[in-house]
Computed example of a mutant assay.
Amino acid sequence: MLISRHLVIATAALLIAGTAGCASPGDTGLSAGKALHAGIDIPGVLTSTKRTESPLTSAQVRDVNQTLPCRHPDECGVGLGSVSARTTNLVGKVYALGTRADARQRTVTFDKIDWFFGETATTACRADKVSIPPAAWCNDFYYRNRNDFQRTVSIANSATITVVDYHSAASPIPQIPASLQTLDRRFKDSETILIMTIREGLIVDLREQFTP
């Protein structure tokens, strides 16, 4: 009796599969669980440990500025390209002297300070043995600069940036929206004190502190 070659191959495949299914993981000296953990192939035991990571949302890509090159500029935000985020371990509200704002890199360089207002300013001046003049310094405000360490930190695309409108006659003097280019010019023109909110290593809000 003639037997089809395809039938022979199919029968052999079923026999092999049946044998594999009955094989005990103990024959290899490993349990199925250990084999799975070790990534060792045992007949009839699934040992793949690959998993699929959830992709970043477009907002996360824009604000975190991932280090991988962007396939499209919109993935990393306008003007960011493949620039890596410059982060800091500072958290929450931070007062600082602004040094430089880089619009292309979307970073702000600053020198962190301790800020005092009102009576606490006078107390801090006395503690630092600073002469108290008949002016706003030490009476209305004062800052302590413990060192000249400069930090450069990325600013989120969604961040709000404002500066004091010293040309306004309104009271109190209002804040107006500003670009990083405007902020950088302000740094170069005069001493500029910043109030920043930092979250997850990035600047998410930045405004200029008014000083008389």
Score class of each variant (00 low, 15 high):
Phe141Ser: 09
Ala135Glu: 14
Phe116Val: 01
Pro134Asp: 14
Ala103Thr: 08
Arg104Tyr: 05
Arg144Phe: 09
Asp140Ala: 11
Asp114Pro: 01
Arg86Pro: 00
Asp140His: 07
Trp137Lys: 12
Ala101Asn: 07
Gly98Pro: 11
Lys129Gly: 01
Tyr142Met: 07
Asp140Gly: 13
Ala156Val: 08
Trp137Tyr: 11
Ala135His: 09
Asp148His: 14
Ala124Pro: 01
Leu90Gly: 02
Phe110Thr: 02
Thr120Met: 04
Phe110Asn: 04
Ala96Asp: 10
Asp128His: 00
Asp111Gly: 06
Asn89Ile: 13
Ala121Lys: 01
Asp102Glu: 11
Asn89Cys: 08
Val108His: 00
Ala156Asp: 13
Arg104Leu: 12
Ala101Met: 08
Gly118Cys: 09
Ser154Val: 06
Asp148Ser: 15
Asn147Ile: 08
Thr87Lys: 13
Pro134Tyr: 07
Phe141Lys: 06
Asp114Gln: 13
Ala101Trp: 05
Ser168Cys: 03
Thr123His: 09
Leu97His: 09
Val91Met: 11
Asn147Trp: 04
Leu97Phe: 03
Ala136Asp: 15
Asp140Pro: 00
Glu119Trp: 05
Ala121Gly: 01
Glu119Phe: 05
Tyr95Ser: 05
Val153Cys: 00
Ala136Val: 09
Ser168Ala: 06
Ala103Glu: 13
Thr122Phe: 08
Ala96Gln: 09
Val153Ile: 07
Trp115Glu: 06
Thr123Lys: 15
Ala159Lys: 06
Thr88Ser: 14
Arg144Ile: 04
Tyr166Cys: 00
Lys129Ala: 11
Ile132Val: 15
Val91Thr: 15
Tyr143Ile: 04
Ser158Gly: 02
Arg146Ile: 14
Lys112Trp: 02
Arg104Gln: 12
Thr109His: 03
His167Phe: 10
